[in-house]
């Protein structure tokens, strides 16, 4: 589904990603872990198409098409979704109107008939239930005055509504208490199927107790320095990052 090859990218003069290789297949959950500043959020921003970052070389092939050739909205239409670490507040537009705009545009681009207001509302209600969301939430302004937990839940709610093929969850666990974390993780697990894939980006192992990854990758200085199964996350939790980052630093300097 996704194949990233030798991806190098940065912001202005600063190089952040120094050659990323990553393959993700449908039905898989990948966790990307790493210390602060290792390039985790940059990787997710570049996949989603944030124009603040410059891609120096490499490719991101998603279902046979190079995402780097596409605008962020076109990537979304293809089925890429990014759950933001810091969701943006957009005063003046309600959650329901925001989603209506997003879904209408996606359906239009995919050549599908517009969804009726009734069906859309029904779907919103169903997904709200999945995430234990309160009534009245749909008419609130997008992320405005939301608590940290509400913002993260709102990200997963949008994911549920947009039904992406590839979901990237950037530090979705940060700022969540354990109850909220369980709700969010439960939502993500219920949305998982054989046709979609998830990349979970996290600093801590905690989230991976609830969203079980098939693969774990360690990112350091813009490179994936180690990959393994879910047991790698536990090892990192126990030993920290130093033991592998030091080894990697020796190799790449």
């Amino acid at each position: 589904m996704l194949k990233i090859e030798n991806l190098k990218a940065g912001i202005e003069e600063v190089k952040i990603l120094n050659g990323i290789d990553l393959s993700v297949n449908a039905g898989e959950v990948h966790a990307i872990m790493g210390p602060n500043g290792s390039g985790k959020s940059t990787l997710s921003a570049v996949i989603a198409g944030n124009e603040s970052y410059e891609v120096e070389s490499g490719s991101i092939i998603f279902e046979g098409e190079d995402l780097l050739e596409l605008d962020p909205d076109q990537r979304a239409h293809k089925g890429v979704f990014l759950s933001f670490q810091y969701p943006v507040e957009i005063p003046g537009i309600s959650v329901s109107n925001f989603l209506k705009a997003a879904i209408s545009e996606k359906r239009k681009q995919l050549g599908l008939d517009p969804i009726s207001a009734k069906d859309l509302l029904g779907k919103m209600r169903e997904k709200m239930e999945l995430l234990n969301m309160k009534k009245g939430y749909l008419s609130r302004n997008m992320n405005e005055g939301f608590s940290g937990g509400e913002k993260k839940r709102n990200e997963i709610f949008q994911m549920a509504m947009l039904e992406p093929k590839l979901a990237i969850l950037d530090e979705t666990d940060s700022g969540l208490d354990i109850d909220a974390l369980k709700i969010v993780a439960n939502g993500v697990n219920k949305l998982k199927n054989k046709k979609n894939a998830t990349i979970v980006i996290t600093h801590y192992q905690r989230l991976l107790d609830y969203i079980i990854p098939d693969y774990v990758h360690v990112l350091h200085n813009g490179r994936i320095i180690k990959s393994g199964g879910k047991e790698l996350a536990l090892e990192l939790e126990e030993k920290g990052y130093d033991w592998i980052t030091k080894e990697a630093d020796k190799k790449w300097g």
């Binding site: 944030n50 124009e51 239409h77």
Partner: peptide, 16 residues
């Protein structure tokens, strides 16, 4: 710009 990018990742085109 952050808000524009956020909206575009949801599939809303730049002008909209």
């Amino acid at each position: 710009d952050d808000a524009l990018f956020y909206m575009r990742t949801r599939g809303i085109n730049k002008d909209d």
